[in-house]
């Protein structure tokens, strides 16, 4: 038995090494054929392309490195805003689904069912071409000015592309978060609801102070993976022409032919971003569990 296990492990190791060798060989062959070699000197050269939107000043004469940084910031902007909004939407929809109010719970149920059946890419294209580009050319609205040129919100100028990606990611991820929140809420014993009700506490207050804190341990692990999904799904921004990290990398690779270095940078950036997200959530998780353990 032990012997057989050893053989299986040995076999898997050899197969993995062979695969790795094959990949490295391919890489070397390609590097020789293109005659480029592996290097990052090109990052300092001027990019030569313009970016539709940038959080910091950017002109085509700035370097590739700066262009990629701007792309990374654009990604970060849409991801952070998406995380916050998707959480708010998801918690609201999840709470609505487990509420006693039949209208609210069926509305939330319809939202979840519809959004989960349609591919994200289609939804992004819908928000971009139908919802936002379908707006009239002349701004309408007061506090929020809407037009097909962009959205003006309290002095904040948001491009149509940014809005389409943000709304698409928020609505899509919000539906999954809603299901996770609903599951967590349902895991809290009925007696807890009865106890806060019998004390005359309002439903919303009881949900916030009594039910949700107890649902958190069940919610957090699944929520983390939704957050990571949102970050990774943000690369679909290229479909609507939002200048996120992936879109800028794509242009850079096309212009310089530095596919290997480009993808390495891209992989590292997302690794860093997702490590930040999962690290933050892990810290939050252990803080929540710590408080719960203290109460045991």
């Amino acid at each position: 038995m032990r012997r057989r296990n050893l053989f299986i492990q040995l076999g898997i190791s050899i197969a993995l090494l062979a695969l790795l060798g094959l990949l490295i060989n391919n890489l070397a062959v390609n590097l020789i054929r293109t005659g480029l070699g592996l290097g990052f000197g090109w990052l300092a050269r001027p990019a030569g392309f313009a970016l539709a939107e940038s959080a910091l000043p950017f002109t085509p004469s700035d370097s590739y490195l700066w262009a990629l940084t701007i792309g990374w910031l654009n990604s970060l902007k849409v991801i952070v805003a998406g995380l916050v909004l998707a959480t708010v939407l998801g918690v609201a929809a999840g709470a609505a689904r487990s509420s006693g109010n039949r209208l609210l719970s069926s509305l939330a149920g319809g939202y979840v069912a519809l959004i989960r059946q349609v591919p994200l890419l289609l939804q992004l294209l819908f928000w971009y071409f139908v919802a936002f580009l379908g707006l009239p050319a002349a701004p309408m609205g007061g506090l929020i000015k809407l037009s097909n040129q962009g959205i003006q919100l309290l002095g904040l100028n948001l491009s149509v592309e940014f809005c389409a990606v943000l709304v698409g990611l928020t609505v899509f991820t919000g539906a999954s978060i809603a299901e996770i929140v609903r599951g967590g809420i349902n895991a809290v014993p009925r007696g807890q609801w009865e106890a806060f009700r019998s004390l005359g506490l309002a439903e919303g207050l009881g949900l916030r102070r009594i039910v949700l804190p107890q649902a958190l341990p069940a919610i957090l692990p699944a929520l983390t993976s939704q957050y990571l999904n949102l970050a990774k799904n943000s690369t679909l921004a290229i479909a609507v022409g939002y200048a996120d990290l992936y879109a800028v990398s794509d242009t850079t690779i096309t212009q310089t032919g530095r596919a290997i270095e480009g993808f390495l940078l891209l992989l590292l950036s997302f690794l860093l971003l997702n490590l930040l997200i999962s690290g933050g959530m892990a810290a939050f998780n252990s803080a929540v569990l710590g408080r719960l353990n203290r109460s045991r």
Binding site: P189, G191, Q192, E194, A195, F196, I210, P213, Q214, R291, L292, S295
Partner: peptide
């Protein structure tokens, strides 16, 4: 209540 139903996360 029979099962006390205290809030476990509160002192």
């Amino acid at each position: 209540f029979q099962q006390f139903n205290l809030f476990p996360h509160l002192s």
